[in-house]
């Protein structure tokens, strides 16, 4: 396989982890996470710092990134879960900005806008082509594991409660379910997955910097999930791959507009992404793979 395609597939798998995460919170449970870029950043920095500064093995770094993502997700959701869903949106959006602010300003820890380089990989980079292939296999396996667990969870009685919460939290509470507890656990699980995505990204490229998790990243993930279809894991994973195809395609089509400056080209790309998202919401809100509404007990 072409090196370029392998690299794109690897990035698509990283994005796939984030769409699976967002599907769990927003698609299944109805909790919107507008700070998914922030959790990606938390995961990326946690694992990068532990493996470069303290020499931890990559596996321990990624596991810690998931724990960090889950803890921060739990703290943020505790403040808002008893309130209308809008509040979680406001808090998570603000949170992503704070993560970027800290990453930019705490030079002693994060190296500011220069970022952290030399992050180790779980497979020796010296293998070249072999490294790329092995890493793709690894991240694909991880994505498959996350997707499989998420779809098992979704089909379980637990998942049925989550969908019930999304569709009507009051009725679910009356039916005797502890809505706040379900939401808290699910949100923490989803932010743990986003943390893992960030950590894996750092170990793949060996470099993390605050630019990586600009708010645009969050919009990318929402776009991917909306294209694929919210509420089901297949759509989430498919959406990530379609998103990468769109992003890469727009990179090539930018070559047809050579009279534009680099800033203008990136502005056009971002406008295209935002417009596509709005069009999807309007004309195909259920995505390429619509959620199947199974009969009770299925």
């Amino acid at each position: 396989m072409d090196n370029y395609l392998i690299a794109m597939a690897t990035i698509a798998c990283v994005y796939g982890l984030m769409t699976v995460s967002l599907n769990l919170s927003w698609g299944v449970t109805g909790m919107v996470n507008l700070g998914i870029a922030g959790f990606f950043g938390i995961g990326a920095y946690t694992s990068a710092l532990l493996t470069t500064r303290l020499g931890w093995p990559v596996v321990a770094g990624v596991a810690s990134a998931m724990v960090a993502g889950a803890l921060v997700g739990a703290v943020l959701s505790i403040a808002t879960l008893r309130l209308r869903d809008d509040y979680l949106a406001i808090v998570t959006l603000g949170f992503a900005e704070i993560v970027r602010l800290v990453a930019l300003n705490e030079l002693w820890l994060t190296n500011g806008s220069d970022g952290i380089s030399g992050i180790p990989a779980p497979i020796p980079r010296g293998y070249g082509y072999g490294f790329s292939l092995a890493f793709l296999a690894l991240i694909a396996a991880l994505l498959a594991l996350a997707a499989w667990s998420a779809s098992r969870l979704q089909r379980s009685p637990y998942g049925r409660v989550l969908r019930a919460i999304r569709d009507d939290a009051d009725v679910t509470a009356v039916a005797g379910k502890d809505v706040v507890r379900f939401k808290l656990k699910t949100f923490a699980l989803s932010t743990a997955i986003a943390g893992a995505a960030g950590a894996m990204y750092g170990h793949y490229t060996s470099f993390v910097a605050p630019d990586l998790f600009a708010p645009l990243l969050t919009i990318y993930i929402f776009l991917a999930l909306t294209i694929g279809g919210t509420g089901n894991v297949k759509g989430a994973v498919l959406g990530a791959f379609v998103l990468i195809a769109i992003l890469e395609g727009s990179r090539y089509s930018a070559a047809f507009l050579p009279e534009l400056s680099a800033v203008q080209q990136s502005a056009v790309r971002e406008m295209v992404v935002a417009a596509l998202f709005l069009l999807c919401l309007r004309f195909r809100p259920r995505g390429l793979v619509p959620e199947r509404m199974g009969a009770a007990g299925e």
């Binding site: 927003w26 109805g30 919107v32 507008l34 209308r84 869903d85 809008d86 949106a89 959006l93 708010p215 645009l216 969050t218 919009i219 929402f222 971002e270 406008m271 992404v273 935002a274 417009a275 998202f277 709005l278 919401l281 809100p285």
Partner: peptide, 15 residues
């Protein structure tokens, strides 16, 4: 849902 509109408004800002 109001949340969908909130997300759409983020895209509007980006645009």
């Amino acid at each position: 849902a109001s949340i969908t509109l909130a997300i759409a408004s983020v895209a509007v800002a980006l645009l």
